[in-house]
Amino acid sequence: MSVLAIAEQRDGEFRKVTYEALSEGRRIADELGTDLAAVVLGSGVEGAAGDLGKYGADKVLVADNPALVEYLTDLYTNVVAGVIEKEAPDVVVLGASTQGKDLATRVTARLNAGLAMDCVAVKVEGGNVIATRPIYGGKVLADVALNGKPQIVAIRPNAMSIAETAKAGTVEKIEVDPGDGRLQFVEKKLETEKVELTEADVIVSGGRGMGGTDYTLVEQLADLLGGAVGASRSAVDEGWRPHSDQVGQTGKVVSPNLYIACGISGAIQHLAGMSSSKVIVAINKDPDAPIFSKADYGIVGDLFEIVPLLTEEVKKIKG
C-alpha cells in the first residue's frame, strides 16, 4: 500500500491546494499505515521540493525538465502516468484546480483507474476510498466508492484543512520523458494582486443591490479582511463584474471561512455555490430575502449604510 500526492506549482511556488492535498494524503497514508510520496513537476523546482516534508511527505519525487515549465495536459499526463506505473500507489491525491481536474481526468482515463472529482471529504473503508462530493451544485452530497488501481481523489480547494506533520521529505530527482505533445503554450496572464475566489478565506459578494459598477465598498471590506470580491450572476449579467467573479451553481462554488453577501437575494443557484461556507453573513434591505434563511448572521438594512460601518468596526478590532 502507498499513497502519492501530486503537488501543483506555478512559477516555482506551490498552490495552497498542494498543502491541502499533502495533508489529506498524509491522513489517508496514516489510516492505511503506509508512506506518502509526493511528486512535483516543473522546471527548476528542486529547491522548493524539500518543503513538502513539512506537510507529511516521506519522500518527494522531482520531475525537473525544461519541457515541464508550463502545465501542458499531454506532457504532464505522460509524466504522471509514468510515475504512477513505476511507484504503483494505491491512492493518488491532488487538488481539483483547473489544472488538477484536467490532469486527474487524463491520467484516470489512460490508466483505467477510478476517480472522484472535487471531493470535500475522504475516508478509507476496507482498503477502498470513499469520497464525499457535492453534486447538483451542492444541493446533494454523494458518497462515492472507488475501485480500480490507483484510486484517484481530486480535492476541492479550500475544503480540507492543512496539517503540518514533519516527515523526512527526502528529495529524489527522477528521470522522466515528457514525450511529444500537440498543445502549444502561447501566453499566461495573472492578476497577481487579486485573491482567487476558490482559495479565499473570506469572500465579500455584491449582487444587484449594489446598483452599479462601483464596488468600492465591498472591495474595501474584502481588502481589510484579506479576502476576495464575489458577485451574483445578476451583477455579472449587468456587466458590473467580470464572469470570473460569479459565485453559484453555474459560476464558482466556494467554501470560505466567511462569506458576506451584500444586496444578494439568495436565489437557489446562488445558494448552491456558497452554502458550504463556514460562516455566512447577509446584508439585505428586504427582511424576507431568502438569503437570510441560510445566513448565520443577518442584518436587515441598506448596504450603503451597513457596509461602511462594518468596515470601520472591523478596522477597530484589527487594531
Binding site: 446533494v140 454523494a142 458518497d143 455566512i280
Partner: peptide, 22 residues
C-alpha cells in the same frame, strides 16, 4: 458495466442554522 466510481449513498448537505437576524 463496472464503474470505477460508484455512488453508495446520497444525503442532503448539513442543514444550516440560518435565520438569525441581528
Amino acid at each position: 458495466a463496472d464503474p470505477g466510481a460508484k455512488i453508495v449513498s446520497m444525503q442532503p448537505p448539513p442543514a444550516r442554522q440560518g435565520g438569525r437576524i441581528i
